[in-house]
Design a protein around this nucleic acid. Sequence first.
RNA 1: GGCGCAUUCGUCUAGCGGCCUAGGACACUGCCCUCUCAAGGCAGAGACCACCGGUUCGAAUCCGGUAUGCGCUACCA
Length: 500
Amino acid sequence: MSDVVRVRIAPSPTGPFHIGTARTALFNLLFARRHGGTYIVRVEDTDTARSNKEFEADILAGLAWLGLGADEGVVAEGERGDRGPYRQSERSERYTAVANELRAKGLTYPCFCTPGDLDAERKAREAAKLPPRYSGRCAAISADASAARIAAGESAALRFRIKPGVVVIDDLVRGRVEIDSDALGGDLVILRADGTPLYHFTVVVDDADMGITHVIRGEDHLSNTPKHILLFEALGVPLPKFAHLPLILNPDRTKMSKRKSQTALVDYRAEGFLVEALVNFLALLGWSTGSEDEVLSIDELQERFNLEHVQKAGAVFDRTRLEWLNGQWIRRLNNEELLVRLRPFYESAAADGTLQRAATDAEIVALIPLIRDRIPLLSSAVTLTDFLFATALEHDRAALVPKRWDAATTLQALAAARPLIAEAVGEGEQPLLDAEDPLEVQLRALAESSGWKSGDLFMALRVAVTGRTATPPLFDSMRLLGRTRVLAHLDAAAALVSGS
RNA sequence: GGCGCAUUCGUCUAGCGGCCUAGGACACUGCCCUCUCAAGGCAGAGACCACCGGUUCGAAUCCGGUAUGCGCUACCA
């Protein structure tokens, strides 16, 4: 394998960037990096009815965000490389030319069957419990006869003759796989009646033209690989190596789908998953290092990646595990990096009205040490700290009274704590973080002299001041909030409790 | 229906004939820490290695069969 490695990811812009495509792209990139090869992005948009530019833009943006932008081929800004074009919609002449080559070799024939004919044939075979398969009835039409029919204006698809025999796939993941070409469904349409090419044909032409050495793709293509091999042979070009990756599965172990799982990459991004976590997680879905290391950067993954450790069985997408990894990566980011990641979430929360105003960088920086260990997702930061950006709180009356307390005790405690807080808390201070907070000392003393558990006192204050039962550390939160709002919230809470 | 692939704790996986009375991680349970929630630490529970045969002194690991699951089977990609 001393030859130059060239691999590719060939997304089809028929939907938003799919998490499964992301993983295939990642494996290709990892393999290329590991072997000093080239990683190519090609857009497979021959299905004009289902492809569109918005999806293509989404896919390219997603790849770029993940750090999986192309070395060669299609990137958001255009194309790079001299073996293009890299968009199938721009390669029509090439497909036509190659089809003509095959035609000249006598390896194809025009097929005049209409979709209706084929449908009827398929149904008949199904009813007879026979595997669906094209009968090849147009194969026997003489060249003169078909030329005459075409001249008469009849349209025809172009079929590639499937050579009888057993096709051997030497798969890098699965080993030797043999498939009888008889099971391929008969002669293959490579050009529609309107002259546009079909996937199995374009993929082979492109892989050949672009000098792809390793085809690394999902297992769902394994059964179709013999068609590709036959086409490569017909073109007289060397075969690439194949490596079929296990499928990513829904929890019910079917192929991961939009219906049953969240598959759009943008949705994960919007929730606040880090690229580091997504890449780490995806790499470990169907591949392992062979060691017990699990939290790995893309650089570490690149160093270790190999096809030998690729799993053969499908892997269920375990979102809980992704969230754990996300937490791991959030904790590994330094303050500056975390600020950059967090900022857009505060901005969009302000824009959509979730928060009354956006947070300043200084505010986010002050918050980071308080929330870093508490957010599984970047978006969790906003909900965890929303009280800091609100002028009034919507208290939950039931939550205001600690479990072991009654309303009277709560009122008494809030009243007793108020002057201490008014004295100790300034107007929007920095958190004291690990230092012992003098207010805490005073309030503990208050609790003790009043016969309360300090935990109950703190909980009453927490809910009064933040409106929540789960918050960042209480005293730091109060300092961030500032005296005026703390006291206002305290009074509002007391009013609510006394009214109940 | 045909063809193909797969099968180790709920999930992701380690394992490549003896180190396995099967290891790790997530999730789960308990304890510790603790102002809440987390994070972190410790401990625990959880897999007759799908099943049945065979090879071997010895099998999760090799071979055969069965079962189950999944994938493919388009003038979709």
